[in-house]
Design a protein around this nucleic acid. Structure first.
Length: 1024
RNA sequence: GCGAGAGUGGCGGAACUGGUAGACGCGCUGGAUUUAGGAUCCAGUGGGGUGACCUGUAGGGGUUCGAGUCCCCUCUCUCGCACCA
């Protein structure tokens, strides 16, 4: 569950452009570097992925050094060094700060690591560690650390003094205590209870990368608030957590660290589980699952078999790059100048290879239709999904070959322009290309063109700057309506993947066709003209793409082109030339991965019997753990006889196991179902429990999964439905896509991006230059603007971190991280704490006021505020997840209560019980957001229950009623005065009061009153 | 190019069906207390003006007694898709 599609694409685009220039500019790479330099900000903002790629490109092409040396002649030196530095910096950063150093280190360890680096870096690093130790422990450190040349001495820090120690707010002590308490009581366990209304709340499960990042914290905090709130509202809440545990990073990390992916993954899971528990999230850990567990993926294998049986899983040949030396498929990015990136002497061949696909296209229409039936999803996501499915209505039309029996079929949405189709273009991959050029003089030219085009990186091929090129095949086909012979081209811009891989070209009404026709001197014919003028094809400078009247179109002349779409399609159908059809952009889901760390595809290849499914009784096909990874990163499975050697279940002969594994998105397409019955042994899903819990009522996660994960899950749920495993079709009723966490970057003109620790009083700690505050961007390693949540928890406690995540902005918007903001949250919690602890004795003497005798001001206003706050907070959480406004409402209540208490005058028992009600309300309302401090305060007030088991407070209408109302007085819509009147005043009385008002009188002088508008109990507007 | 969303103080952000623009917080200014504070408390804080007042929600039009909110146009930004036939 990572990766951001857009970023990746942009990264690739840039890298491809660079590669392009490196390839096509002979010995002068300066153009490529100009590109990088000019797009410097873009490049950096694209995250480390782009850097890896660009670095990769540079390394592969020639060493970076060489390129810089050579290009510095052609380009400004200064820019080069900046780029150079950035890359070096990134590399250093990755090595120094991310890989070698565990998240928290002791002083001794810090010294050891520091000494390893030596010099300036070491002292800076150690200072950073000391800062942390300081802040987290408040400890008295008195140490001298020897760093060879330098000696750092640390002064002991005075401990805080606010008086009575035991009453101080100490989150670091009380939070773990409550967490242990909750766990011991099994507070978060969810059990099926048909009598209670269920509520299934789910956050997207994390990839176990090793430690949680701030995005996780935000995501899971939002979810936890909703889970706890619903629970207090009496719902039977399911709130599980698990691990998206298969995937590439584990393989890479394992090779680098000489460990095993399983070991690495499970260690990370253990570390992250501790962190999540430390945040106080209310997960039912009994339902925890990891997708790399055979007890999980065995059911996925079973479903795969069932899909195979129904024809929903199939094997298909596709064009891929193949390196003989590596014996593996290469991604387009791994092909360089037509050669393997690891074996420059080995030419890559284009191979048609078999891969497994899931038939998502079968469900495209249904998923599209349901887009309208999911009002709980954000429009943004829905439109992305619709876009991705890409349904378009049009016609399939057959163009008969000249001099042959067969025909070429095209798909078009513009059958109205058919009479203007003057040539045809095929995609280079189109199987007919080979056939029709056989024996012609053009054969070699066409073949070379196809070969050249296919070897191009797909991004390069489809990039804007790549020229639209084609080559004439020497053959013609018939335009089926004009019966005119039209030439057939092969063109690089025709997508084999979309439609039929062939297009009819209408140069007069399609800009791209127009340019192509002009380039190759092809015929044009106008078939649509504007209503009030004529078009001359010889004089056109661009295609006419607007609507108009059909001309040169036989029986359809004179009709409006859009209106004729249908009748033309019918005409084609009657003549047997074509038919109406729908085309989808979405392709079947290719799930084969030549990777090790994934779920094996449960299939067997037998020479005699072909593809044979593994019998159900032999499941799971377990991924062997006791084998050596290959140093080059390829999958070891095809080299592991103990894995692939097997016997055919049909003929018992020798057979070979499928060694591809499944795309990890398959695992994440149904984990939410399995949470309902993680221990079920009889099948993938226990219908009874799954029917109780599913669908997920509220799903929360990042927008980056708007397409892939969510689309796959919707598809997979439909499959499970068809296979009878589940009775729902749509897995997620409501979806909340939370925004990203961003932070300003800090940059030194000399040294580039800086860590906060490298900035001293606004200056770079290395060169003393003034630091520039950069843009506010998504947190990323390469920007050095990441915040480690663990550091924050250790410093402020989990409640403060949760509070800030919720308060800084509404969940669906981006959140800008600010240190002061965190301080502010911490201060607020302390204020709440003191509100209780400072008045504990008085509060303990009374019970919370609930109704009771008539109150008088000012305590009445505290009472009213209490109920107003309940109303506001409840609606903010319930209706729109606006926790920021909910928090500000509680802040207002706390402030008002404080003010009341600070005001002069004796407080009697009634006053205190109203105050107690206000305080208890604040605690209750805050409890889903900051569960630790509130449970502690609740207990301090003498309660025994966990707040999670206390009912959510309700407000009394009666308490909201006021005797006085503030009325706005306007003249011509402008506010002129505000007056307090009795709430029972009638409209007439209000009007009279307004007109009599002194200020209003001033504005009425010398003018005649046209009209007076009275809005009930709100406002009077006098129009003059 | 197509599709979606957004534009409000120094900043994050409030403003429910049109009805006090700037809630709450951060920052800043002044004051109190303190050995000190990155602690706490009080006051102030959109801009202009001594003032009454004027002005202000990207820009321009419109509807309305009244528009941040509704309608039209323009601009800017973000996101997604993109040689889609």
């Amino acid at each position: 569950m990572k990766h951001f599609a857009g970023e990746r694409r942009r990264a690739r685009e840039l890298a491809v452009q660079v590669l392009f220039h490196l390839e096509y500019s002979d010995d002068d790479p300066s153009e490529a570097f100009r590109l990088i330099c000019e797009n410097f900000e873009v490049a950096e903002s694209i995250t480390d992925f782009s850097w890896q790629l660009i670095r990769g490109v540079c390394d592969k092409k020639t060493t970076l050094d060489k390129v810089i040396r050579r290009s510095s002649k052609h380009w400004r030196l200064e820019r080069m060094t900046r780029l150079d530095r950035s890359i070096l910096r990134l590399a250093t950063y990755e090595v120094m700060f991310l890989e070698d150093i565990p998240p928290r280190v002791s002083l001794d360890e810090a010294v050891e690591i520091g000494n390893k680096f030596g010099g300036e870096d070491s002292s800076r690093y150690i200072n950073g560690v000391l800062d942390n130790v300081y802040n987290t422990m408040g400890a008295e450190i008195d140490a001298e650390i020897d760093l060879g040349a330098e000696t750092i001495s640390i002064e002991p820090k005075e401990s805080d003094n606010t008086g009575n120690g035991d009453m101080k707010y100490n989150p670091l002590e009380l939070e773990p205590r409550w967490q242990a308490h909750w766990e011991k009581q099994g507070l978060f366990k969810a059990e099926e209870d048909p009598l209670k209304e269920k509520y299934y709340l789910l956050e997207m499960f994390p990839y176990p990368s090793g430690k949680i990042h701030i995005g996780h914290v935000r995501n899971y905090t939002i979810g936890d608030v909703v889970a706890r709130y619903k629970r207090m509202c009496g719902k039977n809440v399911l709130h599980p957590m698990g691990w998206d545990a298969f995937g590439m990073p584990a393989e890479n990390a394992a090779i680098e660290n000489n460990t095993h992916p399983a070991r690495w993954t499970y260690d990370n899971i253990d570390a992250m589980r501790i962190q999540l528990k430390r945040m106080g999230f209310s997960y039912d850990w009994d339902r925890e699952l990891a997708t790399c567990d055979p007890e999980y993926y065995r059911w996925e294998q079973l479903v795969f078999l069932q899909m195979y049986e129904k024809g929903l899983a199939y094997r298909k040949k596709t064009h891929v790059n193949w390196c003989e030396k590596c014996q593996t498929v290469l991604a387009n990015e791994q092909v360089e100048e037509g050669c393997c990136w690891r074996h420059p002497e080995q030419e890559v061949s284009i191979k048609e290879m078999n891969s497994w696909f899931l038939k998502i296209t079968d469900y495209a229409d249904d998923m599209l239709a349901y887009c309208e039936k999911l009002p709980g999803w954000p429009d943004r996501v829905m439109s992305m999904q619709k876009n991705w499915i890409g349904k378009s209505h049009g016609a399939a039309i057959r163009f008969p070959m000249v001099g042959a029996e067969d025909a070429i079929e095209v798909f078009t949405t513009r059958q109205d322009t058919l009479f203007g189709a003057t040539f045809m273009c095929l995609a280079p991959e189109h199987p007919m290309v080979k056939e029709i050029i056989k024996g012609l003089p053009q054969e070699k030219e066409v073949f070379d063109f196809v070969d050249r085009t296919l070897k191009m990186d797909s991004f390069m091929r489809t990039a804007d700057f790549t020229a639209k090129e084609g080559v004439f095949t020497g053959r013609h086909c018939l335009n089926p309506v004009t019966r005119e012979e039209i030439p057939i081209f092969v063109a690089n811009f025709v997508l084999f993947d979309y439609g039929t891989g062939a297009i009819m070209a209408v140069p007069t009404h399609d800009q791209r066709d127009f340019e192509f026709a002009r380039k190759y001197g092809l015929k044009l014919r106008v078939v649509i003209k504007p209503e009030d003028s004529d078009l001359d094809e010889t004089k056109m400078t661009e295609a006419y793409v607007d609507q108009g009247i059909l001309v040169n179109s036989g029986p359809f002349n004179g009709q409006r082109n859009l209106a004729a779409l249908d009748s033309i399609a019918d005409y084609l159908e009657n003549k047997g030339i074509g038919h109406k059809t729908v085309n989808f952009r979405i392709r079947d889901w290719g799930i084969s991965r030549q990777r090790y760390w994934g779920a094996p595809i449960p299939m067997i290849h037998c020479e005699k019997c072909g593809i044979v499914p593994v019998p159900e009784k032999d499941l799971p096909v377990v991924l062997p753990l006791d084998l050596e990874l290959r140093p080059n990163g390829g999958s070891p499975l095809p080299f592991e006889p103990s894995f692939f050697e097997t016997t055919c279940p049909k003929c018992n002969g020798n057979a070979r196991r499928e060694t591809d594994t499944m795309d990890t998105f398959v695992e994440s397409s149904w984990y939410f179902d399995r949470y309902a019955c993680p221990d079920y042994k009889e099948g993938p899903l226990d219908a009874k429990r799954v029917d109780y819990w599913l669908p997920v009522d509220q799903y929360i996660g990042g927008i980056e999964h708007a397409i892939l994960h969510l689309l796959y899950s919707r598809f997979y749920t439909r499959v499970l439905n068809d296979l009878g495993h589940i009775s729902i079709k749509e897995p997620f009723t409501h979806l909340l896509t939370q925004g990203m966490v961003c932070k300003a970057t800090q940059e030194c003109p000399e040294h580039g991006y800086l860590f906060p620790k490298e900035v001293v009083e606004g200056r770079c700690s290395r060169c003393g230059a003034e630091v520039i505050d950069g843009n506010i961007v998504k947190m990323s390693k390469s920007k050095k603007n990441v915040v480690d949540p663990q550091e924050l928890i250790d410093r402020y406690g989990a409640d403060t971190v949760r509070m800030f995540c919720l308060f800084a902005s509404p969940p669906d918007k981006d959140l800008e991280w600010s240190e002061q903001g965190v301080d502010g949250s911490y201060r607020f919690l302390q204020r709440v704490w003191r509100l209780v602890s400072d008045h504990l004795e008085d509060l303990k003497k009374v019970t919370a006021h609930d109704g009771g005798p008539e109150l008088t001001e000012p305590v009445k206003s505290v009472h009213r505020k209490t109920h107003e706050t309940i109303k506001k907070v409840t609606s903010d959480i319930e209706n729109r997840f606006h926790f920021n406004t909910a928090i500000s409402a509680v802040m207002e209540l706390v402030n008002e209560t404080n003010q009341f208490l600070n005001a002069d005058g004796q407080k009697d028992a009634v006053d205190w019980s109203v105050v107690r009600k206000a305080i208890e309300t604040a605690i209750l309302l805050l409890s889903p957001l900051v569960p630790h401090i509130t449970d502690e305060l609740w207990q301090m007030l003498g309660h025994k229950d966990f707040l999670l088991n206390v009912s959510w407070p309700t407000y009394h209408e009666a308490a909201l009623i006021t005797e006085k109302k503030l009325i706005i007085l306007q003249v011509n819509g402008k506010v002129r005065n505000r007056i307090e009147v009795s709430a029972s005043s009638s409209d007439k009385e209000l009007e009279a009061l307004a007109l009599a008002d002194e200020k209003i009188q001033r504005f009425l002088k010398g003018k005649s009153i046209k009209r007076v508008i009275v809005v009930q109990k709100k406002l009077v507007n006098v129009v003059v």
